[in-house]
């Protein structure tokens, strides 16, 4: 059965009619499939949630143990049946390579296979399982960085930039804006892989999710809370990771001679860095850049591509030019800045 007959964009997000499940709904619903734990995809308050074990743990860390009435964990590669038992929708999770626990969701109904990839990337990331290309009729992709200007450099290069700056300005505290979930832990591992084994200092908002990653077997090395440092002048020449909102906050005033950095895919656009008064932009993204999006779609070679949020115009144009059948879903509510 044609996919658009049983899977449609609604005000609350993408809705599977045949299963009565929403995927990453943006307001409270009865049944939700969650691709990953970023706040704009994983809300609290749904009745019934299906997600990977780490995603459930992330949601419980954020929204409490009662983040949903019933919770069902699904491992990568395992399947469940949803909807009418006599006419079921089969649901399988596959790794998306975006953050810890991030999943692509394969929905299969009456012989049609649809992959909802959520947010995903193709660059190596030691904090999560790598993206798997799944054969399907419809591939649903994000388009956050879908413009040919976006080229994400390897994370090592950006971490080196940070270490270089640290050597150049040893008197300055390097305050790096990173999103607490995913980017933070990936940056830490990026720095560790370059042999940086000093303690890395955390803003309070980063702590719980770092602990959660460590609980899932990801060793982040020595982390110290800024709050536990009584003499803040000790932070000169050190790296402090904080949420982007804290960069210009009063909180940062206690730090010595702050050099503001930020790790985000948007940092490639100078004006974006400037808008946040960032002195050291680090281009680190947990999404695909333009080339990675095209390579992925080419590799999967689906019958059709549906585009969710981001720069859908450009991707739609490019795919149409290549003769790939594509449409934009115009889903709203996914905050393009919140998670990268």
């Amino acid at each position: 059965m044609q996919a658009d007959k049983w899977l449609q964009p609604r005000d609350n997000g993408l809705y599977c009619i045949a299963a009565d499940y929403y995927i990453d709904p943006t307001s409270e619903v009865a049944n939700a499939l969650i691709t990953h734990g970023h706040a704009d995809h994983a809300m609290g308050g749904h009745h019934n949630v299906v997600a990977t074990v780490p995603t459930i743990a992330i949601m419980q860390t954020r929204y409490g143990e009662e983040m949903a009435q019933t919770v069902q964990a699904l491992d990568y590669g395992a399947s469940i049946k949803l909807g009418d038992p006599d006419d079921p929708v089969s649901c399988t999770f596959y790794p998306a390579g975006h953050i810890l626990g991030s999943a692509q969701i394969l929905l299969s109904y009456r012989g049609t296979r649809v992959v909802i990839s959520g947010d995903y990337k193709r660059q190596p990331d030691p904090t999560c399982s790598p993206f798997e290309a799944i054969d399907c009729d419809v591939f649903i992709t994000e388009a956050t960085f879908a413009l040919p200007v976006f080229k994400h450099p390897p994370i090592e290069q950006e971490c080196e930039k940070l270490l270089h700056s640290l050597a150049l300005f040893p008197e300055r505290c390097h305050l790096v804006g990173v999103y607490a979930l995913g980017k933070c832990q990936r940056m830490i591992l990026g720095l560790r892989s370059l042999g940086y084994h000093q303690p890395i200092y955390l803003h309070g908002a980063q702590r719980r999710l770092c602990d959660l990653y460590q609980d899932h077997g990801i060793d982040l090395g020595q982390l110290t809370d800024v709050a536990d440092v009584s003499d803040k002048s000790e932070l000169a020449g050190q790296i402090v990771l904080a949420p982007p909102s804290a960069l210009s906050d009063r909180w940062s005033r206690s730090l010595p001679e702050v050099r503001k950095a930020m790790a985000s895919g948007w940092m490639q656009i100078r004006a974006r860095a400037h808008q946040r008064q960032v002195e050291l932009p680090l281009v680190v993204s947990d999404h695909c850049d333009w080339q990675a999006l095209l390579t992925t779609i080419n590799e999967i070679n689906p019958g059709e591509v549906w585009i969710t949020h981001g720069r859908e115009d450009a991707l739609l144009h490019q795919l149409t030019t290549q003769g790939v059948k594509a449409r934009a879903l115009s889903l709203i509510g996914y905050d393009e800045d919140a998670t990268d």
Partner: peptide, 13 residues
Amino acid sequence: VDPDLFAMSYDYV
């Protein structure tokens, strides 16, 4: 580069 992609990129950047 494709002129449409150029225009969209310029518009964004």
